[in-house]
């Protein structure tokens, strides 16, 4: 179904205009490069989503299918990504692993964004003592390394997808809360809030009707930028053997399982899962970055991983 990632990226590049074509002339101007970045990112994301959604439906092969006689085969036409120590097809396992990672990333980012928006908006809208208390709580949480806190949360449950979602979600709302609070504070002093109060609006109504809709674009953007981070976090937890159960393919556990064979000179079991972590996250970050530039053209976007 899906060819090697490098080819996919190249195809997407060609679809939107080859970067080397403009090199002959002057330095390419910014809008062109931005459009290229958006195009490549969108293309990669389309391929990734198609692979993740369609492969399990269309290809009946089992990613757990063990064939010891085919173990550690280099990439070939039959197994484009090669096979692992137990002879399982790596392409299939990578796609299934990406499926889990994307799911965890999306849901965890959603949890973090909803939590962060609620706490940030409450702190900003209430102000005063409640605001100070909540922000000190945020400071306390951010003083603890969040991977450590995440490990602590994961360790309280049986291994599975949902503890990982919970762990990543509960440790990543801090920055969103800060962003949302700052935005709410700047909106709160606008005269239209005064007008709403004078019109009889309650605190809740002011927050729900005027403040939260005003910060929603920023919050959603923060949430999308959180997705790559959450994917990396999930992979890190799985790599440490704390995340997704070992038998279930996940990009982190695939990389971890292949560590031993790397020393024996077998490069493919680590390379492909690694690329599967890097390329989709860069594509998401690229799309979110372009969106941020549209929302706030004055600030140049940087990757937030």
């Amino acid at each position: 179904m899906a060819g090697p990632q490098a080819t996919q990226a190249a195809e997407a590049t060609q679809a939107t205009g080859a970067p080397w074509a403009s090199r002959s002339g002057a330095v390419p101007h910014r809008p062109g490069r931005r459009a290229l970045r958006v195009g490549v990112s969108a293309g990669v994301m389309a391929i990734v989503l198609a692979a993740v959604l369609l492969v399990p439906l269309l290809i009946p092969a089992d990613p757990q299918d063990v064939r010891l006689d085919e173990k550690l085969q280099a990439p070939s036409w039959e197994h484009p990504f090669g096979t692992d120590r137990l002879g399982r097809d790596l392409l299939l396992r990578c796609v299934y692993g990406l499926r889990v990672s994307l799911l965890v990333g999306l849901v965890a980012a959603l949890v973090a964004t909803v939590l962060g928006t609620a706490i940030g908006a409450a702190a900003g809208a209430l102000g005063g003592r409640a605001d100070r208390l909540m922000m000190r709580l945020v400071d306390v949480f951010s003083a603890v390394p969040h991977l450590l806190l995440g490990i602590f949360i994961v360790a309280m449950f049986r291994p599975g997808v949902w503890p990982v979602v919970l762990s990543v979600g509960l440790t990543h709302w801090l920055s969103t809360a800060r962003i949302v609070r700052a935005e709410v504070l700047s909106l709160r002093s606008r005269p239209y809030i005064d007008a709403a109060i004078s019109g009889g609006a309650s605190r809740t109504r002011v927050a729900v009707r005027h403040l939260v809709p005003g910060v929603l674009p920023q919050a959603v953007l923060a949430g999308v930028l959180m997705v790559p981070h959450a994917i990396w976090h999930e992979s890190a937890l799985s790599f440490l053997g704390l995340g997704i159960p070992a038998h279930q393919p996940s990009l982190g556990s695939l990389t971890e399982a292949a560590r031993g064979s790397l020393l024996a000179g077998d490069w493919w079991p680590t390379l492909f899962p690694g690329l599967f972590i890097i390329i989709p996250t860069l594509a998401i970050a690229g799309l979110a970055g372009a969106w941020r530039e549209r929302l706030n053209p004055r600030r140049r976007s940087e990757l937030m991983l």
Partner: peptide, 18 residues
Amino acid sequence: RTAVGVVFQQPRMSADPK
């Protein structure tokens, strides 16, 4: 609160853009 109606100087600032 509602017994006093207020009109502000800058309509842009006193209208919720949404």
